[in-house]
Design a protein around this nucleic acid. Sequence first.
RNA 1: GCCCCCAUCGACUAGCGGCCCAGGUCACAGCCCUUUCAAGGCUGCAGCGCGGGUUCGAAUCCCGCUGGGGGCACCA
Length: 420
Amino acid sequence: MTVKVRFAPSPTGFLHIGGVRTALFNWLYARHVGGEFHLRIENTDTGREVAEATEQIKESLAWLGLDWDGEVTFQLDRMERCQVEARRLLEEGKAYEDEGAIRIRMPDEGVTGWDDAVRGRLEVANDTLDDLIILRSDGRPTYNFASPLEDWLDGITHVIRGDDHVSNTPKQIRVLEALGADIPVYAHVGNVLGTDGKKLSKRHGAVGVDEFRREGYLPEALVNYLALLGWSYDDRTTIMSRQELVERFTIERVIARPATFDYEKLEWMNGAYLRALEPNAYAGALTTFLGEQGLDWDDELARRTVPIVREKLVKLGRYPEYAGFFFHDVTPDAKLLDGLVLAAAEGAIASLDPFETPEIEQALRSLSDSLGLKPRQVFQSIRVAVTGTNVSPSLFESIELLGREKTLERLRSAAALADA
RNA sequence: GCCCCCAUCGACUAGCGGCCCAGGUCACAGCCCUUUCAAGGCUGCAGCGCGGGUUCGAAUCCCGCUGGGGGCACCA
């Protein structure tokens, strides 16, 4: 039997990082076993802006590389089928009418249980189960009816979802039984928590996927990081490619406990991925990112900054402030400038030939000797003058790339600033 | 209030009765490299929530407590 899983977000907002983790686990499992991963939009509640949210969700998944099989389905499209099935249950005596709505009968004695793939045996006393409304008086199905019904129609074999659905599961199992459907395997993963220990939600700031994209995270890094939230391969492996993740992912190694999302570790991992990129791929990611940021910076120049920038950047979002001086004028802080040093530096490198890193370095080093100053004192003033900040990429290489003309120009105007 | 789930360093986790006076990663601290630094290298700090059992032996099994999370709609 082919494994079929689904990711079923409701289109009430943008895709959250917690939801993405759920989608990822489903996707990894499907790809691992060679099964299918379906995307279903649970829009039973005819909310506004459904289309926009749906597009956003699809775009986020696509960006992360979580491709789905077949067409995206919408719960709303199966409303009629839900009504047909509800009437059938009515006729079979498994459901009854109540104030215009239809309720399904739940057993009063015994327990409803299942073998959860991550939690083991779970059971709930049936007397805690109310007769669930499956069809509202206006004819629309409720979530706990439509969702399992669709799982059945789609032939879903494994339901991998968040912790918060545990209490829905016995209800859905009873619905499925009444329908005469097979019960899928359920796997309930611990929720992703914010730094405050609360379940991640819209109110927690930058948790939307598009937000991470805007900040310059690589999808590979985000995927790798998320995979490690509630799952692990062994006791020492941290960095894993998408392919390795697919090869190694099993539900058996998913744990039940909730996990706190840690931005710092994500940043570290993103930096690791960035540094591992081939220069060409790095340049591609960078220019694409800058384009998405609406920064109309010269692609060719951006490509040339890659070698001197890649070692230190943790996320692309830091690039504009770290390397922006290559693309626009700077306004250095006069307090950090030494007019004498700058004037001397201008003279020291004005006529260098070739105007390249080794020559520049040599010239500036002998300058600090002749001025009787420590290299850092000299270099720091020049750095501020040329890059506009005291934190920048390697100074000599930056000067080479910036070029003679611009460098001299900046040294000159900074010197003027310093004297003033 | 009722129901359910969870519980190892600050965070993510390994551990499925002896290999653990608990291993890895992030963070943090110190040192090194060095033209700054957000990078790199090395070293270090830090944990089995508490109390009872079971067992020759428990982070690992059982019970209770505490703590945290989730759910109790004609929401999804």
